[in-house]
Computed example of a mutant assay.
Amino acid sequence: MTKVTMSVNGTERSGEVEGRTLLSAFLRDTLGLTGTHVGCDTGQCGACTVHVDGKSVKSCNMFALEADGASVTTIEGMANDDGSLGVIQQAFQDHHGLQCGFCTPGMVMAAAALLKENPKPSEAEVRAWLSGNLCRCTGYHNIVKAILAASGQDVSKEFAA
């Protein structure tokens, strides 16, 4: 066992891990941050997406030891300081960008990375960015609409489904 320490959602957190412990398992099982979902354990679905040192990563493809000393943001860190929903989370709620909710944390984290890099993406850019995140319920239409709304764009008119 090896001790790892990282800043998670702005708070220094530590724990003992085996070398094979995935970051997703450390976050969920050791730190109790169960908002990071694990859907496939192969990096194909994107449900486990978190930010490590500002970069979007699939936490089931990264060992916890690799994040030692890093700054990690999970879905729990996306809320406002007062606990209310952050802008992207609120847009997902307002525009029905979720159904079962399983992919939602990964989608919100992917959206945050996109909007950091490209504050006013086009519909096509949003759809391309989300290609690494799978949703089996919504058909993506309202997810895309929520991300465009979170970017401050007018989504009152219909766009391609």
Rank of each mutant, 00 (worst) to 15 (best):
K3N: 08
G10D: 09
V17W: 08
G19N: 12
L22I: 08
L27T: 04
D29W: 06
T30Y: 02
T30A: 01
G32Y: 00
L33M: 14
L33T: 07
T34N: 07
G35K: 04
V38I: 14
C40L: 02
D41N: 12
T42R: 10
Q44G: 13
C45Y: 03
H51Y: 09
D53M: 07
K55L: 05
S56V: 14
S56F: 05
S59F: 09
N61C: 15
M62D: 12
F63T: 11
A64E: 02
A64P: 04
A67W: 12
A67L: 09
D68P: 08
V72R: 01
T73H: 14
T74A: 01
E76W: 15
E76G: 06
A79I: 11
G83R: 12
S84C: 12
L85K: 08
L85W: 11
Q89R: 10
Q89E: 06
Q89A: 12
A91I: 10
Q93D: 11
H95A: 00
G97K: 09
G97A: 13
L98C: 01
L98D: 00
Q99Y: 06
C100P: 04
F102S: 05
F102C: 06
C103A: 13
G106L: 05
M107V: 03
M109S: 01
M109F: 02
A110V: 01
A111G: 07
A111M: 12
K116H: 11
K116E: 15
N118S: 07
P119G: 10
K120R: 15
P121D: 11
A124M: 11
A124I: 12
R127W: 04
L134N: 05
L134F: 11
C135Y: 02
C135P: 00
T138E: 07
Y140I: 03
Y140K: 06
N142M: 13
V144I: 15
V144S: 07
K145Y: 04
K145Q: 10
I147D: 03
L148I: 14
A149F: 09
A149V: 13
A149L: 10
A149W: 10
S151H: 13
G152F: 04
K157N: 12
K157T: 15
K157I: 09
E158S: 12
E158M: 07
F159P: 07
F159D: 12
A160R: 08
A161Y: 08
